[in-house]
Design a protein around this nucleic acid. Structure first.
Length: 329
DNA sequence: GGTAGACCTGGACGC
DNA sequence: GCGTCCAGGTCTACC
């Protein structure tokens, strides 16, 4: 199998817009090159770790939408490795979400029809999404950035000696056997240490794979999934709602203090935090199964009004600025 | 069922 | 340079 190959993209897909659509694109082991619009990402593959670069060349055409993705790996990939790369990137970029579903969202919320926004970037695995969500709770964004970088450097597998990404994201198995004290001291995760280890134990091995498969299955009932997520250590109502949207279920809203800021500053809402939460839920309820996308892209538009298009944000500068206090109007 | 306080880190601020 | 305060969501004990 060559080190270079391509992956077809849905007709509406634009790499820079759809990859730079959720904050996790700024977290290790992800890297977006603003200058050449290339994603660099380390992946754990059956044959060992590798770094992959993802671009969407236009081959002279002006229009990027729907052009295939060009993949370049740091080493030769065998058939199993290449299949795994396709599967992980399909999840991360939501390449299997039909363009019709994005059109459905634009029908419900036409504000985003012109930009074409609708796809939301996520992690290559549910486990990474869970840990990233836990590291984003009760902490300001710069600390989330630090935690994810150190988790990769301390517990990830080395995939390259240099470049913007050197390590994979740690596996559930690896974190399950890491001492909480190590995570606290070396990864700066604080009191999340034991919760991360406990969470990792649930997603390690074959049993963990079965649990992840059940959670990823679109046939799993929403309420059962919600209850199962709340059972996980470190996952409360906010985190569970966030993981629900990461699983493609957009009707629940992960509202936090950033949502309150948005409600007051952008939507002109007034009242106590509790009252505002109710108003925010009511505000987005008309968007039904697309409520989160309406909320999120409204928020994203605000961020872009402050910092320019998201594909011009640098991971290590602009990408550390996203906290409610720094975004206050 | 609702609420208060602890948990931990890093940044801001005052001295 | 040091100490204090604060932001942030989850968890537990208590009413």
């Amino acid at each position: 199998m060559p080190r270079r190959f391509s992956i077809p993209a849905p007709g509406d897909f634009v790499l820079r817009r759809d990859y730079c659509s959720y904050g996790y694109f700024l977290l290790w082991p992800n890297h977006w090159s603003v200058a050449d619009e290339v994603v660099t990402r380390a992946l754990a593959l059956p044959g060992g770790p590798a770094v992959v670069r993802i671009a969407q060349p236009t081959e002279g055409r002006r229009e990027k939408a729907g052009r295939p993705l060009a993949i370049e790996a740091s080493r030769t990939l065998d058939r199993r490795d290449a299949a795994e790369v396709r599967a992980r990137l399909t999840r991360m970029l939501r390449l299997d979400e039909p363009a019709e579903r994005i059109g459905e969202f634009h029908g419900v919320d036409p504000r985003h029809q012109r930009s074409g926004r609708g796809r939301l970037m996520r992690s290559p695995t549910l486990f990474e999404d869970l840990i990233k969500t836990v590291t984003s709770c009760n902490v300001q964004w710069p600390s989330t950035v630090v935690m994810n970088r150190r988790l990769c450097e301390v517990a990830g597998d080395r995939a390259a000696d240099e470049g913007p990404v050197t390590h994979t994201f740690p596996s559930a198995e690896r974190l399950a056997r890491t001492r909480p004290g190590t995570l606290r001291a070396r990864c700066r995760v604080g009191y999340r240490d034991a919760r991360i280890v406990d969470l990792s134990r649930r997603f390690a091995g074959e049993e963990g794979a079965r649990l992840a498969g059940w959670m990823e299955d679109p046939a799993t009932p929403d309420d059962a999934l919600w209850e199962a997520l709340l059972e996980l250590p470190g996952i409360g109502p906010y985190a569970a709602a966030n993981v629900m949207q990461l699983l493609g279920r957009y009707h629940r809203l992960p509202l936090d203090t950033e949502s309150l800021r948005h409600g007051r500053a952008v939507l002109g809402m007034k009242g106590t935090d509790r009252a505002l939460m109710k108003r925010l839920h009511a505000h987005y309820a008309p968007f039904g199964p697309h409520a989160f996308r309406s909320y999120w892209f409204e928020l994203w538009d605000f961020y872009e009004s402050k910092h320019g298009p998201s594909w011009t944000w640098h991971r290590d500068t602009t990408g550390t600025q996203f906290t409610a206090s720094k975004l206050s109007v």
